[in-house]
Each structure stands twice: as structure tokens, then as C-alpha cells.
Design a protein around this nucleic acid. Structure first.
Lengths: 120, 120
DNA sequence: TTGACATATTCCGTAATAGGAATATGATTT
DNA sequence: AAATCATATTCCTATTACGGAATATGTCAA
């Protein structure tokens, strides 16, 4: 059956690194396509195609202004991904805690490699 | 060049919904392959293949115990994805704020389409 | 209308997927 | 050693993605 379409959901859409770059670039404010092209040094057709994917999964919105087409992120669509990863937050937190505890035990018998040092 | 390999990073690996299901199942504690098979009702070879992908990107770890092979999540690897989406948190927060403000203005001049209604 | 600018679409080739079925490998028990 | 249990690998196929190049579409200006 092959891999799921990139347009099937946000998870598939953001698997492509360039699309993540585009989203980051659009985050602060809406931008015309050519700004993306210039900023990321990608061929214009490539950017248009990536934007289309992002649009189809609702990660960006568009509006036209004269001959410019302005894209902006729809951050709401990223919440699903954020929410999913958040389910694992407690696990990496407890993992960090274990690391921290180990470090504190170490502190009783200090490790020369870990002690403070100034740049010589 | 075709799509990036599913094994190239966590983003690509979790694009596959079954792999996300597997990670959720493994989250509480390590499990043998057959538990995953039984729990998710997937063919065993399919599970083994998915686990291999997850292993290659570091999303899970393994250890052998007799004839069982126990997989466990490595939540640390999901932090990168969480961290990336977090960069957009402030944007959806302000988006929510705008929605909330609109709602409060609406409250002053109630919209009949929005007012409460009981099923007739 | 013609031209210039901005963006989108199409066509092509290559590469890589996930699923299914069959089979191989590894470990344990009898 | 043979049978059994647990897991991994291989082979096959249909589908799809991405990049590049060329071209189409759309909008404004002169």
C-alpha cells in the first residue's frame, strides 16, 4: 500500500524538513511566496508545491493581495502534534529525574571530569 | 530524490499512525513483541518491521529476555518533536486569545444562531 | 495589447514505502 | 534432536513522493 500521503495529516506533512523550515519562516507573520523562496533559497516551484501540501492539511492559510499570494501559518493545526508528543512528557521527565538523581549521588564522591573548571 | 526515509529521523518515523500506536502502547512499560501484536491486532511481521524503524531512529530501545524481546520507549527522542512544535505555542495561544475576545464582544449583542437551544 | 512580475501546474525519473505471504532465525522445553 | 514458541527477514507489488525543467495561469502596468 505504500506510505500514507503527505497530505493525509499534519504528521505526514511536517515529516519533510523543508516544510518545517517554511512553517518556521511563516510563524511571525504572513508572507508572499517569493519571500519564502528568497529566504530559504529554494526553487520557486518547489516552494509552491510544499505550500500546497501545507495548505491541504490546514497548516497554513492563504489570501491573495494583488499579484501576491500571502501565506500564513495556522498554528492551531500544530496543536495536534504537540498534544500527541505531550502524552510522553511525563516519561521523559521521569527519565531526567533519574539522571539527576544519579548525578547527585555522584556528587558525594566528586568526579574530576565533572568539577568546575575555568578556561585556561 | 523521492521522500526521505522513514528511518531518517523521529519526524518521519512517527508519520506512520501504527508506529504512533505502538509508541503509545509501549509508553507505560516495556513489552514483548507479541503483546503489541495482540493489543493492536496487527500481523506480527508488520509489528517487527515497525519496531525496527522505531529502533533505528532511537524512539525505542530493546533488550532480550529469554525468547522474548522487550521493547521500551525512549521518550527522550520525542522531545525533539515536542520542542519543535513548542516553538509555535505562542502563536496558537494568541490565536485562542483572539477567539476568546471575539466571543466576549459577541456576548454583548447575542447572536441567535449561537444562543442555547434544546433538541426539539 | 504587450510585457513584466508572481505563482501554480504538469511531466518525468528515481527512490522508497507499507502490506501480505512465506520463510528464516533464535531460544526453550521435552 | 525435535517440536514449539517468539521474533525477524525476505520477496513481491502498487503507490507515492520529491526534484528539476518547462510551461501555464493570473495580475498589474505602460
Amino acid at each position: 500500500m505504500a506510505r500514507a500521503a503527505t497530505t493525509s495529516d499534519a504528521f505526514n506533512a511536517i515529516a519533510e524538513p523543508r516544510r518545517r523550515d517554511i512553517l518556521e519562516f511563516l510563524a511571525p507573520r504572513e508572507r508572499p511566496v517569493n519571500d519564502v523562496v528568497a529566504s530559504l533559497s529554494l526553487p520557486q516551484p518547489s516552494v509552491s508545491k510544499h505550500l500546497r501540501v501545507l495548505l491541504q492539511v490546514g497548516l497554513v492559510d492563504v489570501r491573495r493581495d494583488g499579484r501576491h499570494v500571502l501565506y500564513r501559518i495556522n498554528p492551531e493545526s500544530l496543536r495536534s502534534v504537540h498534544a500527541w508528543t505531550s502524552r510522553f512528557e511525563r516519561y521523559w521527565r521521569s527519565q531526567l529525574l533519574r539522571v539527576k538523581e544519579r548525578a547527585e549521588h555522584q556528587a558525594k564522591r566528586p568526579d574530576p571530569n565533572t568539577t568546575k573548571r575555568r578556561p585556561s
